[in-house]
Design a protein around this nucleic acid. Structure first.
Lengths: 231, 231
DNA sequence: TAGTGGTCTAGACCACAGC
DNA sequence: CTGTGGTCTAGACCACTAA
């Protein structure tokens, strides 16, 4: 037997998804649902709050609960750790370090938009010995002093950071560009091969932790974003 | 005054994000938090359940609540309506229809992965008279019978659908590719120019509504995803 | 088997915003 | 002003599972 609040939630969800309740329609008030399901108000509230959190309905005091019009432009983008993702596909993962240097951010690629002293790394991510992504990364030394001692052989700095440094805020910018000289060479493709470009900046409590620019071979990599019930 | 369950939630969240509580650490049991905050167990439960729903902690009966190891990060991807976005930048928007046909899905680009009879449209999105995105779209006629009468002159089918058809589920796949013959011509760029490729499929209650493939000029368009407090 | 979370009750007071 | 949701209580029983 599933929980009652779960049943109430899915009941209403079905009505909305099935078209019985259309955007703008008003749901029964909590007191009526209490009577309908013969339960307490908290149980009804839990069910409808979940729907509101999922964006299916909108609640307004005094007015009631209404089916939302889902012109939601917000989708959930999965950003997996590259090492985990490659291994998840049953392939061997390796990060090959091409360059490592402690320097001032000014020396690093300006697109990374980071400041102060940093550890700058350049490398490629490889699946079964074949490179599929080029990465240029700057890690702030003031935010992550330990990074200086880290070794990036089987796994890259991204994986290391993920396991050692929690972050509170991140921004990812996704675009497309042609592989430039060094990038193309590292990826073993012709120059100007179309690549998915991902630039991510990460903060921890207002302190800039890392900035990274990754180039993925267009034909062999994609990001996926979801909206809705299906995971 | 913020709600108490909200305060408990953010308190613990800060401890996790600040590193005070590390992945694998065990949180105090609900009874202890009750005592700490001087509230009822339901209030504590609501706070921690929210953290669990957000993926920050993992709950296990008999064992306790543990800080989760963040592997795949879910970020919020903003997917704006192209017409709104262009106008928001103060530019003039127009959709130019290149092809319109009612046919069976089999005839349409296979990458759209849709079935049955559809309205197939091909067009370009233009900002200030300059094309910046190529779009090939299939709309299911059984899901959206009205689409047959719609006119796509100043605005495209995407905007029309957004305003007329609510959807409940969507999947967006983001990659990069070189512009092909027709696409390159419509965008007025050389063939193989790197483009951001966005393929989106949309459902309403298990019924496939539309599938679309958009090519954006790599240098002039990007998607942005956020995680954290800032918007 | 016992500790822990999962769920639920039958009330209560309050804040807010439509009416 | 009043209907509605937001929050909270002080219990209770149950289900699961790790010890």
């Amino acid at each position: 037997m599933t929980a009652l609040h779960e049943r109430i939630r899915t009941d209403i969800e079905k009505k909305i998804l099935g078209g019985e309740l259309k955007p703008g329609d008003r749901l029964p008030i909590e007191h009526d649902l209490m009577a309908e399901y013969g339960c307490s108000r908290m149980t009804v509230n839990k069910a409808i709050s979940a729907l509101a959190a999922a964006g299916l309905v909108q609640r307004k005091r005094k007015a009631g609960t209404f089916v939302a019009t889902p012109q939601a432009h917000a989708m959930v983008l999965d950003i997996p750790d590259l090492a985990d993702e490659v291994r998840g596909r049953g392939q061997a993962y390796r990060y090959r370090l091409l360059h490592r240097e402690v320097c001032n951010a000014a020396k690093v690629d300006a697109s990374l938009e980071i400041e102060g002293d940093v550890l700058w790394t350049v490398g490629v991510h490889m699946a079964d010995g074949k490179p599929f992504a080029h990465e240029s990364r700057a890690v702030s030394l003031s935010a992550v002093p330990d990074i200086d001692e880290a070794v990036f052989d089987p796994e890259g700095p991204g994986t290391w950071l993920l396991r050692h440094v929690p972050w509170t805020e991140a921004e990812t910018r996704i675009s497309a560009s042609g592989a430039m000289d060094g990038e193309a060479q590292a990826l073993r493709v012709p120059e100007q091969t179309p690549c998915l470009t991902v630039t991510r900046r990460t903060w921890r409590a207002d302190e800039h932790v890392t900035a990274v620019r990754q180039l993925f071979l267009g034909g062999s990599y994609s990001l996926v974003a979801h909206f809705g019930a299906s995971q």
